[in-house]
Structures are given as structure tokens and as C-alpha cells.
Design a protein around this nucleic acid. Structure first.
Lengths: 144, 144
DNA sequence: GATGTCGTAACCGTTAGCGTTACGACACCG
DNA sequence: CGGTGTCGTAACGCTAACGGTTACGACATC
């Protein structure tokens, strides 16, 4: 599975904004977050743009612009973030449709689809059990 | 998430071999399986090679060669197949190490690692609940 | 207006996966 | 002992996804 760092990076950005706001600041800039994540500000803006579409963050433009949380960290879960940044399914079907004249080729996709739906539902449930507040707490609890 | 069809294709191949053997045949060729899956025989050989390393199938060479199951379908689970064909973790960390001088940059990886381990463990448990016998049963139960 | 930041397009490099060709290795058979 | 059919595997190309980078317009504040 070509693993993906989008969920990790999005959680990083949200935790950073949340902590920054608790320190009394209004908004965080993509530049600041990018420095913490050691990447490019555009990457952060693109990712936060998806989170904004999902209603997790807001942005302001103009001088003194930047990003702020749209909800409390406590009310966001990893599932919210996952759905915002990972649209596709976890497991894919064949690239080309199997031979429908073959019994296995005909039945394999509905069969696997059924199993995958159950598994993805469990995954979503697990993701929904972790709030971004939990993430920030564990981040701050890391030994230095 | 760049979804992957390897697990689907491997399950397809195993179900095909299992059914073929139940019909009285000794071995299945990569050509036959490739026809059912509508792909190239080399793709099947590569994939079955990984399943062989995991002890799920065996291969014979020479004339009348081909592939056969090393164990009963009932004793193989999707987890066995998943581990054989998907080595990497489900979620990745940052590509470049975050700024260790930043509190969030420093604590984010251990925090996410902890959550991810629990989630992947749950995923593995779900995968282990489905046997290839279950897969073949559902394949044959598909409406035509 | 000048400034600073977002918003977004465009392009490049890397990687993973799949499809394809090719050919040697191997075991059976006549 | 050579012919045959299949595996085993290397090599290459194509495509898609992702992240990094540059660039520049849009916008709001001063």
C-alpha cells in the first residue's frame, strides 16, 4: 500500500494552529506551519484548503491574514480529517473488469466489495475515536 | 489514499485456484488465472510468487506445471494475504522530519505512531476474520 | 497605493504499480 | 536426447499520485 502522509500532515497543522491559538494568537500563517512541518507553504495551503471545505478551519486574507480553527479541537476527530483529505476507498478493485464469463471473475468484485465495506466501516469507527484534542495532548506529552 | 488492487487480485487468484482444484484439476497456470482476471500472466506470476514466499501456494515447473494451494482455503485469511502482498504501513509519517525545535514538530510523530498502531491492529483483526473459504463462498453466491 | 498573505495554476521529480516483452531454467515426454 | 510448455525474473515503458517549487493574481488592511 503506497502509504500516505496526508493524514499525518493535516493533524500536524491542526495541532499547531490549536496550540498557537491557546497561546493567545488569532491566526497562524501557512509559512509558520510549513516551518514546523519542514515543508513548503503551498503544500500546507493546499491541505488546509481541503480542511476548510470540510468546515474544520477558516482562513482570512489580506494583511495579518492566516488560518484559524472553525471548531474546537475536542470536537474534531481523525475521521473528520481523514474524510477531508482521503477521498478514495482503502482497497481498490481490479484495474480492468475481470472476465464476466468466468464464475470467479463474475463474482469476485461483489464479494470483495462486501468484505471491504465492513472493514472500512470499522476503520472509520476507530478513526472517530481519536479527537484532535487527544492528538495535541499526546504531542505535548512526548518526552523531550 | 492511493488505493491498491493487490489484495483483490491475490484473493481472485486464490479463489480461482481453489475452485479449479475442487473441480478435480491438479494445478492452475498463470495464463488461466490471468484470463479470468483480465490481466497479464506475468502480473499473476509475480503476485503468486509473493504468496508462495508466505507459504500460501506452491508452484511446479516443467511441462504440466502450474500453481496449487499449499493450505486449505479455510485456513487462509485475508490478513495472511494482506501481509504477503502489502508490506508497508497504512499511514505514513512526514516525508521529511519535522522541526524538532518546535513542540508540535517534536511530538507529532510519536503521537500519531501510537494512534496508528492501534488502528492498524484493529484493521488486521478485521482482515483475519475473513477466510478465503468465505471469499469463495460469496463469489459463488453472486447473482448472475 | 504599499504590504503581506491567501488561492491556485503550472511544472518537475520521484515513486509505485501494472502491462509487456524477452529469455533462461526446468521438468516432463516421446 | 531434443522438443515442449510453464515458471522465474529481469528490463523497460506508461500512468497516476504525491509532494516540492515557482509564479502571480486576489484580497484586505494599513
Amino acid at each position: 500500500m503506497s502509504a500516505n502522509s496526508r493524514l499525518t500532515l493535516a493533524a500536524h497543522a491542526l495541532a499547531w494552529i490549536g496550540l498557537y491559538q491557546r497561546q493567545g494568537h488569532e491566526v497562524a500563517t501557512s509559512e509558520q506551519i510549513a516551518t514546523s512541518a519542514n515543508t513548503n507553504p503551498v503544500v500546507i495551503r493546499r491541505l488546509l484548503g481541503e480542511l476548510r471545505r470540510a468546515g474544520l478551519v477558516e482562513s482570512r486574507r489580506g494583511v495579518g491574514a492566516g488560518w484559524s480553527l472553525a471548531r474546537e479541537l475536542r470536537s474534531m476527530t481523525l475521521l473528520d480529517v481523514y474524510e477531508a483529505v482521503e477521498p478514495g476507498p482503502l482497497f481498490a478493485m481490479h484495474r480492468t473488469t475481470p472476465d464476466q464469463g468466468c464464475v470467479v471473475g463474475h463474482g469476485i468484485q461483489p464479494a470483495m466489495q462486501g468484505f471491504y465495506e465492513g472493514i472500512e466501516e470499522t476503520l472509520r469507527h476507530e478513526l472517530s475515536r481519536v479527537t484532535l484534542e487527544n492528538v495535541l495532548r499526546d504531542v505535548l506529552a512526548a518526552p523531550r
